[in-house]
Design a binder for these strands. Sequence first.
DNA 1: GCAACTGGTTGACTCAGGTCAAGTCGCATC
DNA 2: GATGCGACTTGACCTGAGTCAACCAGTTGC
Lengths: 213, 213
Amino acid sequence: MFELRELQKLASQVYFRSGKTIFSERELADAVFGLSQGVVRLYKLLPDGRRQVLAFALPGDFLGMPFAERHNFSADAIGEVALCRFSRADLAEFIQSSPNIMRLIIEFAIRELDKAQDQLLLLGNGSAEEKVAIFLVNWRNRLGRLSVFSETVPLPMRRQDIADFLGLKLETVSRTLAKLEQKNVIRIVPKGVFLTGLEQTLLVTGRSYQPQM
Amino acid sequence: MFELRELQKLASQVYFRSGKTIFSERELADAVFGLSQGVVRLYKLLPDGRRQVLAFALPGDFLGMPFAERHNFSADAIGEVALCRFSRADLAEFIQSSPNIMRLIIEFAIRELDKAQDQLLLLGNGSAEEKVAIFLVNWRNRLGRLSVFSETVPLPMRRQDIADFLGLKLETVSRTLAKLEQKNVIRIVPKGVFLTGLEQTLLVTGRSYQPQM
DNA sequence: GCAACTGGTTGACTCAGGTCAAGTCGCATC
DNA sequence: GATGCGACTTGACCTGAGTCAACCAGTTGC
């Protein structure tokens, strides 16, 4: 699409080292970002320190919403990260000029909403095993779509991140992975897993939370 | 806003009796609705019958997203319901003509996304008591904003609906309400509750999941 | 009035997942 | 190659919420 080319011109590249915060919840959203390299964790915090990871962003994903006054979640880098930064002012001007872009943004927001709702379904109804299994399959599929298609699926995030994403404790994530390995549907390797027949398990158990993240 | 008046002309009023389904997940979204009277439950189902209630819609809320091909959740009436029905074709045409409306839709979608993310935070990290307490306070606040401001807060939905909304079982909801009554922060009355010092409880316990639903 | 239902409550018991506390493994750094 | 550290695993135990079942209160229909 023509407009997207134009949009590129507005971007400036920025880089973040592992663990650095890109932006924080409630902060004024003076820019939004397109992720070009690496993985980003999006999350909300409670005053007492409890955390909910909302999503893991991959290259191609957007961080932050145009038209949102303030960020409503925090984002930080998992490993080294490269981003395209769009200043809010530039972006607003650009968007106003193009109904096509408007429409893309709406469709993007709808997709995000749908993903959040699928996640609600999973958090509200899933057992630990279902949660972990579905997380792994979805993650693999997303990486697959980016053709980061290695046999062994990398898991750059920490166990704690997965736990906070799934509403579990890190010990439970660890134990559940061990259980899945026992069942011979995965193999745990350093910094990743190797999936063998996990989706079959999901089908058999009768769940299908719409494999997409 | 001028455009909103115009929009009214496109609407046709429709009515649903208690329990009736307005639309179902995956169904072609040939129309979207504005809720004018009553309460609607929005939910997703799993093949094995488990259900996640995503939200309870109140008058003024929109059901269904313009630009979404298909509904990505189901909706049915809790009690008698009156809706403004907008056909997809009419609406699309109307929207294209007005960037103002586009912008409103984007902002609406962003708000919905934010609400869904707050709900993720609650489902992932809350105890049964927190979930129920926060649900009651949020519900009261929403009704308050509609100036349906009675001292006793009506709860037109069933315990099962609340349970499916909060990722609990109906017995747990029932017990938790009983416990809150014991603590003298609510009083249970037929088809509703009476809140007395519940928000204080929330502040004391240190949680503030952004009181809004 | 009484039967049949539906929605809600309550009790007794179970168990998945949380908690706490040792370990282990990998990997920097000196 | 010792040492320290952060990420992860594993075990023993505990508990909050789920399960199963009985019971109660309104409502509807005959």
